[in-house]
Write a protein that binds this DNA or RNA. Structure first.
Length: 157
DNA sequence: GCCAACGTTGGC
DNA sequence: GCCAACGTTGGC
């Protein structure tokens, strides 16, 4: 099966790429996603070895680096923990409702790739991220889109 | 099954 | 801070 490519959104004030790079093993559990379409991607589509763009939303909307999926979909523990802000009583160990993957830091771009820069690149015009009103926090991207954004990120500022 | 109300996301 | 777009909920 061919490796797939993704884009993962996070508010940097909540969890940034620097937070990920600073983890002892540079790995984290991508938990807390509470949208069914995104859940389906996490649970059914993401595979070990897939790559993803790390995207900062809200403050400085931009792709800021890349990560690797190091563990495929598994039940999101935060949904099962009554003490967690992401707790959801509809999810149980026997019938988990929400899922997470584990991701490992790969690289931080030399220069972030702003959303407004992506908007003017014809090769990126099909991205879900660029759709007006798009709020999906986990979206598939093509290898071509992934590569274009990586090149933009590695270009000198 | 419809749809209004509501809460949230996220760019600007 | 504003507000458009969207997903979810719940009354009917």
């Amino acid at each position: 099966m061919a490796r797939k490519y993704w884009l993962l959104k996070s508010e940097p004030g909540c969890y940034s790429i620097d937070d990920l790079a600073g983890e002892p093993d540079q790995t984290t559990c991508w938990s807390g996603v509470r949208n069914f379409q995104a859940r389906n991607f996490l649970r059914d589509e993401m595979a070990l070895g897939d790559m993803a763009l790390f995207y900062h939303s809200v403050t400085e909307p931009s792709a800021v680096g890349t990560v690797r999926i190091v563990r495929a979909g598994h039940p999101d523990e935060t949904a099962l923990d009554p003490g967690d802000s992401h707790f959801d009583p509809r999810s149980t160990p026997a019938k988990p409702l929400w899922f997470a993957v584990d991701v490992r830091f790969v690289r931080k771009f030399a220069t972030p790739v702003p959303l407004r820069a992506m908007r003017v690149v014809p090769a990126l015009s099909g991205m879900e991220l660029l759709r007006k009103g798009s709020r999906l926090s986990v979206t598939p991207v093509t290898k071509a889109e992934f590569d274009v954004i990586c090149r933009m990120g590695e270009a000198e500022g």
